[in-house]
Design a protein around this nucleic acid. Structure first.
Lengths: 243, 243
DNA sequence: CGCGGGCTTGAGCATAGTCAAAGTCTGTGG
DNA sequence: CCACAGACTTTGACTATGCTCAAGCCCGCG
């Protein structure tokens, strides 16, 4: 193991013990460095032959837009996250991805991925695991939208994001830096921007969380967790399953 | 290629051209035949060391239950579908799965999967593709809950199910057999059972769909599709990507 | 025949949406 | 240094979508 691993390598190592060949092959994912300005649409729904990216700096979000202009954000991506994997596996992208902040990322094209699986088969298993972990988050998010109130959703969202950031070494129990606007919150939680604002005010007044531009502050972590019925199980990484 | 392929083999072949070794290895997934009665909980959330299953007959549903007793169904599984894959990849199951009808399935244990990836590396890629296709469905479902009205959700759900069943050769443009209750619809669409009933009545009266116990009848397929803004893109299979 | 699961309907309520207007903050150019 | 534009936030008033509670119905099955 090297000391200066890429974020993706670190993530995959959590599931599969990687060999030298695996590591070498993975390193190839890191050749095409790119950067994007906030608001840039890195992947367009419906586009064929898109790339994927591994985020090294900044935040992105994946979403779908409905014909009436409404947008539903599926998830945010933070450093270390894979983004646009499905747009490689399928012929056309089934969702869009946009840079939230300025972003630094490595571009991964279809042949990189597919060839790497042939060279280093264990990588395929590792990527399957990573994709499944993403799916677990989407599923939790689905439950959030289907069965929780606006306030519970908000609490759950802040906590999940906090837990994910903690895994990559950012933020702590007091809070974390967060570049999102209230519009982002509305689009990810399936609410209107106006209602988001009211819910935020209520939660602030109740001493639960404070969301000010640029930062989320946990005013009462325990009570927030109880409100959201938040259980980190679906995010946990217990060390390599496959040795 | 053999004439009598298992449903899973047929599905994976749509993405990856499988070799003799791949096919032999896949055949091992089909050794432990099991059957379950309606209502049986095949996988329990939180349980460690669960199996996965490949459905050959009947319908199942995967879901999460919140502490207040509310349930959110994540998806239904129909013949040919993999079920509980994440409960193998993670140490503990992050969701439950229940038989909706009487079910026939093949049990797949963790070592089956993991060993098969070592023996037949292309299978890992194929399974990654299948898992991504499932994720695409969950994502579409998420958009449904976040940004569509009750009536639109209902329309979208019936159409998606119809399209999926058509892929395995069941049902047609006039409708399909469907063993679900109005409670199932409520739990999958994030609505109350009472409201589901009202929405169904409205749609029936408007001449869109008729949902009677045991069958979904499309009264006006075109208008239903327009209402749901349903686009099958995320379900399409265009033939093997990897040869 | 009675029981239970599922379906249906009404009445009243609550959560969240829409529309509208004004306030704040930040960066840019004069 | 100020004026202004534009993006984001805040608040009020009104509306609507969907929920809860409650009751009754239908039908298959033991």
């Amino acid at each position: 193991m090297q000391t200066n691993l890429s974020p993706l390598t670190r993530k995959l190592s959590a599931f599969v013990a990687l060999s030298e060949i695996d590591l070498e092959t993975l390193a190839r994912f890191d050749r095409r460095r790119r950067s994007f300005e906030p608001g840039h649409e890195m992947i367009h729904e419906g586009q064929t032959g898109s790339s994927a990216f591994v985020l090294s700096k900044g935040w992105a979000c994946s979403y779908k837009i409905l014909p009436d202009g409404n947008r539903q954000i599926v998830d945010f991506q933070i450093p270390g996250d894979f983004l646009g994997l499905r747009s490689i596996l399928f012929r056309t992208a089934d969702h869009s991805v946009e840079a939230v902040t300025r972003i630094e990322a490595s571009e991964v094209i279809a042949s990189d991925i597919l060839d790497s699986f042939a060279r280093a088969p264990r990588l395929a298993t590792a990527v399957l695991w990573a994709a499944s972990r993403d799916e677990a988050m989407v599923v939790e998010h689905l439950v959030n939208l289907g069965r929780r109130s606006a306030e519970e959703r908000m609490a759950h969202f802040f906590l999940e994001l906090g837990a994910r950031l903690a895994l990559v070494g950012v933020g702590d129990r007091t809070g974390y830096d967060c570049p999102l606007t209230q519009y982002h919150l509305a689009d990810v939680l399936g609410l209107s921007a106006v209602h988001v604002n009211r819910v935020l005010r209520k939660m602030r007044e109740e001493g639960l969380v404070t969301f000010k531009t640029g930062r989320v502050v946990f005013d009462d972590f325990g009570r927030l967790k109880a409100l959201a019925v938040f259980d980190t199980a679906y995010l946990d990484q217990d060390g390599p399953l496959l040795r």
